[in-house]
Computed example of a mutant assay.
Amino acid sequence: MSETFENKDFNTNGVGLKNGNFIGLPFDEKTAEVVLFPVPWDVTVSYGEGTAEAPKKILEVSSQLNLFDLDVRDAWKRGIYFQPVSEAVMKIRNQLRPKAVRYIDFLENGGVVAENAEMQQTLLEINEQCEAMNFFVYRETKKLLDAGKIVGLIGGDHSTPLGYLTALSEKYERFGVVQIDAHLDLRNAYKGFTYSHASVFYNAVQMPEIKKLAQVGIRDCCDEEVEFAENNDRIKMHFDEQLKEEQFNGASWDEQCNEIISELPGNVYISFDVDGLDPKLCPQTGTPVPGGVDYNQVVYLFKKILKSGRRIIGFDVCETGNAEWDAKVAARIIYKLSCLAG
């Protein structure tokens, strides 16, 4: 519990306060144990854009959440604080996104970057700014980790957690990652973007501290990614189709969760791309895919991680669409992970 909570006049049964804080909670960064760090970035997305706007939308709708949690009574009292969205980062995103759209359109219409000086310059600029964004995320999350905070990164697209994973790799000698996702995100510099949203785990597994990457809900990927994963003994793919067929043949989700968790080390990071969910829960995400896991399934998986004796050391929730329903679902996921982490 936050040391300062007892000094706060806060009614859990009252009206949801729109006071600029997550769920209207009475904490600031100093008094909170869990800090939610927003990253408004979706420069390299290849289909639907708008996830850069999601952190603001999630914060806005969070006042509709109630605080009772069946698993961790009064967990919110530890303190949860949502940092302000960086207007500087959003400004750079707004400058780069139209350039990225023109670049992607050029590629998709058969253009050859090596033969076009303007596109070469665009690619160079975007790669440089994405690297700068990664450093910004690394620097800010490292500060929070050094201050003893549990950090939940709120995207933006799925490229945004890479700097946070780098900071965690300096804090922990070994940890595992559970990735909830429709996509493998194992492409090498997708469309020329070194730090593409589709390349985040290709980049992340270069960190030796990540001892296991368990990918859950996968149902949209390319041959190159599958081959890369099959040739890396630190990566385990759990395809949505296979999970469902096992269930049709009598397997329980409890048994499957045990299998997913079995090779993970003691410290576990959750990387939650909301398109891993059934798209009824995230219709405005950038690349929705039929199939996927349900909300209560992933919550059960998270609880099984804790029951196994492992610890959730941090998390991200990314690719939320800029729409009220999508933001409400994401806010509930964020609150549940905030209750369970640490």
Rank of each mutant, 00 (worst) to 15 (best):
D181R: 11
A182G: 08
H183P: 01
R187I: 01
Y190V: 00
G192V: 01
F193G: 03
F193E: 02
T194S: 14
S196V: 00
S199C: 09
V200Y: 01
V200K: 02
Y202A: 05
N203Y: 07
A204W: 06
P208E: 05
P208C: 04
E209V: 08
K212L: 15
K212M: 15
K212G: 11
L213W: 05
L213S: 04
L213K: 04
A214S: 15
V216H: 11
G217C: 13
I218V: 07
I218M: 05
D220E: 06
C222P: 06
D223A: 03
E224Q: 14
V226L: 03
V226P: 00
E227N: 08
A229S: 10
N231L: 08
D233F: 11
D233G: 07
D233S: 14
R234P: 03
K236A: 04
H238L: 05
H238V: 00
L243G: 05
L243V: 03
E245I: 02
Q247M: 15
F248N: 12
F248P: 01
G250S: 10
A251L: 11
D254W: 10
D254E: 15
D254V: 12
E255Y: 15
Q256D: 13
I261E: 03
L264K: 05
L264D: 02
P265D: 09
P265K: 10
G266K: 13
N267A: 06
N267L: 04
Y269K: 04
I270V: 11
S271N: 02
F272A: 02
V274A: 13
L277K: 04
K280T: 03
K280W: 03
L281W: 12
Q284H: 09
Q284N: 09
Q284F: 06
T285N: 14
T285W: 15
T285I: 08
G286A: 04
T287I: 03
P290G: 10
G291D: 00
D294F: 15
N296A: 08
Q297T: 02
V299Y: 12
V299F: 12
V299S: 07
V299T: 07
